[in-house]
Structure formats: structure tokens, C-alpha cells
Design a protein around this nucleic acid. Structure first.
Lengths: 231, 231
DNA sequence: AGATTGTTCTTCGTATACACTTTGCCCTGG
DNA sequence: CCAGGGCAAAGTGTATACGAAGAACAATCT
């Protein structure tokens, strides 16, 4: 409990490097910086209005997270997720999110389930309103929340990173995924509420399968061919 | 193919930050820097004989990898893996390495299997010689190799990071794991050679279960109590 | 003793300098 | 017209210095 205080002492201060990292990540995910695009330190520094140092630190982390590739003495470029990478990501994500669903089912409190149901309801509304952007947001929120409920920080942070990348590939490809995934979400939350780990895991897998199928469709048309315009 | 050349152009140059990162990682894993220990930038810079900048960049990555915790305006301390974290790690690792084993079984070439068998043989020799350090090395090499054979870069890099942490916790605890694990390794390689994904996955799981059990024994006696010497 | 105030240690961010590579361009010679 | 050498610009890698602000700790005052 003394620890809680200490953690909070200087905690509200967000170092510039973190702000830069977040901005960089979202810029990449949103496609403001396209795969293969060169990211010079000076330019990023100017874009974000900071000096080179925070930028450099953010770049290293972004590299560790797989958003950029850094070639020694040649600088950073936005990573280019190949279609091979997409399936690789989904295979891993399947295992991880299935595990998360199981753990969540085993550990979820009534409050946790309630929170999930709120997201579900908001998702339904947004879907009705055809507010695709909001639907995508809530989709993320739901998945992230389940990861958090799983209570396993490793699982959570790894799967989260993977999730961000999937999002990235999605946006590069084309539109957001269709709203039909919400039916699967309901199945998943029901399973979690039931406390049945096996059932939750199966639901997560079914959902991920559908998602990966959708991703592939996307990839065929919108992505695969524009990898390297003229190799 | 033009790509290969370009990748290699400046590639032999190892930036200081990378050297620092590697050194820092191994120093932490080897227990030269103990959990909770404070890592001031100046000190690290002096320890490694570089300026503060490379140190700072290495620290950010080390934080992303979970080896250090950085508190804003208070600096970096070596992370303290709790016994909770240990089991969390193993749960994730189980899924990941099981998947790796399956993929490896499905994709391994004859050469891959031969390489694994070489490691196995060397491991047997080292075990006979009671060369525990070498046994541990070969153990790592085997696991990492399987990850590589799986051909999934995400899986590989994530599991590798996890593996490093497990190693870390092991060393903190006490001695290396007993040599009996090599029997399980042989089972695993056999399964991979057979090309039977299910069987490989089962073998990996059996191995991981045993390893996690051993880790727990270790944790009880050697680790849990010395977390904070005098809180 | 308990609160307050300083002092000191560090981190955080900026700025600057410079060596060294890589890259791109120009220019010359075939 | 093109090949190839050579040169300048751009950019990274590293070091260093400095100021501002926060946190920890000690000393001081009530």
C-alpha cells in the first residue's frame, strides 16, 4: 500500500518520449506514415515539435514493437507487414486470445461481466447508427478489456501489441470489418460469464477464425498487390 | 536479391546502444544487477564506457522488454519478477511453445532435424561431463532453434523474449535445471521429425509442464523470500 | 516530535558539435 | 550516350554541456 502511493507520486507526468511514441504508433497505424516510408529523426522531431532525443528513444521502442525497421547508419523506415506476416500474427493471436478468454472466464467478477455487457450494448447501438469508426473503437475496447480481465500481464501486453498490428494491417487493407462480428462477441461474453473456460476458449477461437478470414479477403484485394509497386 | 545486399551494407556496424542493451540484459539475467536495484544513467554510462545517450535508448528498450521498470522522473530500476509473474509466464509460454512445436513439425526439413539432433547429442555429452553451464546453453539453443524452425517471426520473437525471462528467474532462484529434461527433449525432437503436429504439441506441453514444476520448486526455496531483504 | 525548508541528486529535454556512412549528383572520359 | 570516379549533401551515431523540474533526504524551526 505504501507502494501504491509511490507508484502514483510522479505518475501523472508523461515524458515526451512516450507522447512521441504514442503519436508515432497511431500515425503509422492510421496510415499517415506508409510502409516503407523513410522516417528521418529531424523530420519526426519537427513533426512532433520536439528535439531529436525523445524521437530517437521512441524509435527504438517502436522498432522493438515491430512498427519500424531500423537499419544501422541508414535510419528508420516504417515496417512493411507482408501478407505472410498477417497469417503469422493470426495464428499466434488465436492461441493467445483463446487463453485470455479461458482465464477471463475463470476469473471474471460480476462487475467485469457487466462492463463487457456495456461495451456490447454500445457496440450494438453504434452498429445501428452505422458509425463504423466507433464500432471499431468498441471492438478494440472489448478485446483489450478481456485481456485485462484475464489478469495475466504478459498475456495482456503481448496480445495487445499483436492486436495493434492487426488493426494496422486492417486499416492499410481497406475498410473496417463488417458489423457481423458483434454476434460472435455476444457469444464470447456469454461464455465468459458462464465461467466455463473451455466454452470461452472455443468462442474466442471461432471469433478469431472469422476475423482472420475477413482479414484475408481484405488482404487479397487491398493489400497484397501494393506491397512494392515495382520490384 | 538486391535487398539482401542493401541489408548487409551497413549491417556489420553494431551501434553502441545495441551493445549496451545486450550487456544490460545479460547483466540483469546473470544477476549482476539485482531486482530492485537502481540503475542511474550516469552509472550505466560509466559501467559500459559510453555516454548517456546510448544508455538511455537501451533503457527504453529494456523497459519494453520487461527487464527494467522506469518511473517518470525517478529513473530505472531492475524489474522484480514476482512468483505470480512466473506462473503467468509459463502459462503463455506453454501455448506459444506448443504452437512452435506443431509448426516446426509441419515445416522441419531433414537438415533442420539433423541440426536439432546435433544439439541433442552435444547436450548428452555435456550432461555426462556435468558441465551444467554448457547444458543450460544448449538447452536454450535447442528451444530457440525450434522457434526458428517454426518459421513464424512473431511467435519466435515473443517466445524468445519470454524464454529470456524464464532464464532470468531461474538464475535468480538458484542452480540450473537438472539434466533430466533431456529425455523430454529427445521426445520432442522425435515428434518434430515425425511431422505429426499433434504429437509435437503434446511433447512440448509435457516438457513445459515439467519445466514449470521445476521452476516452482526453485521459486519456493530460493526466490520468494528474498524479494525485499528488509521491507 | 512534526512540519517546513533547503540542498542535492537525477532525470528530462534541448542544443550543439563532429566523425563517419550512405546517397545522390555531377562531371568527365570513353 | 553511358560508365564510372569523385565530390558534396544528408543523416545517423555519439559525446557533451546546460537548464529546468522533480524527488529524496537532511537540517532547521516551531
Amino acid at each position: 500500500m505504501a507502494e501504491d502511493l509511490r507508484d502514483k507520486l510522479g505518475a501523472q507526468h508523461l515524458p515526451l518520449r512516450d507522447q512521441v511514441l504514442t503519436a508515432l504508433r497511431t500515425a503509422i497505424i492510421d496510415g499517415d506514415y506508409l510502409p516503407g516510408e523513410r522516417l528521418t529523426e529531424d523530420r519526426l522531431a519537427e513533426d512532433f515539435g520536439v528535439s531529436r532525443n525523445p524521437v530517437r528513444e521512441a524509435l527504438r521502442v517502436a522498432e522493438a514493437e515491430g512498427f519500424v525497421v531500423i537499419l544501422p547508419r541508414r535510419g528508420a523506415v516504417v515496417a512493411s507487414p507482408s501478407s505472410g506476416t498477417i497469417s503469422d500474427m493470426f495464428v499466434v493471436r488465436e492461441r493467445l486470445e483463446a487463453l485470455a478468454a479461458r482465464l477471463a472466464a475463470e476469473r471474471a467478477t460480476a462487475a467485469d461481466v457487466a462492463a463487457l455487457r456495456v461495451l456490447l450494448e454500445q457496440g450494438r447501438e453504434a452498429t445501428d447508427r452505422q458509425d463504423l469508426r466507433r464500432v471499431a473503437e468498441l471492438n478494440s475496447a472489448l478485446h483489450l478489456r478481456i485481456l485485462q480481465i484475464s489478469g495475466n500481464p504478459w498475456l495482456s501486453s503481448i496480445a495487445k501489441a499483436l492486436y495493434l498490428h492487426v488493426q494496422w494491417v486492417f486499416r492499410l487493407g481497406a475498410a473496417e470489418r463488417a458489423p457481423h462480428s458483434w454476434a460472435e462477441h455476444i457469444q464470447l461474453v456469454d461464455a465468459i460469464e458462464s465461467g466455463d473456460g473451455d466454452r470461452a476458449e472455443r468462442a474466442a477461437l471461432a471469433h478469431l477464425d472469422a476475423a482472420s478470414a475477413a482479414a484475408y479477403e481484405n488482404a487479397e484485394g487491398g493489400y497484397g498487390s501494393r506491397q512494392r509497386p515495382h520490384a
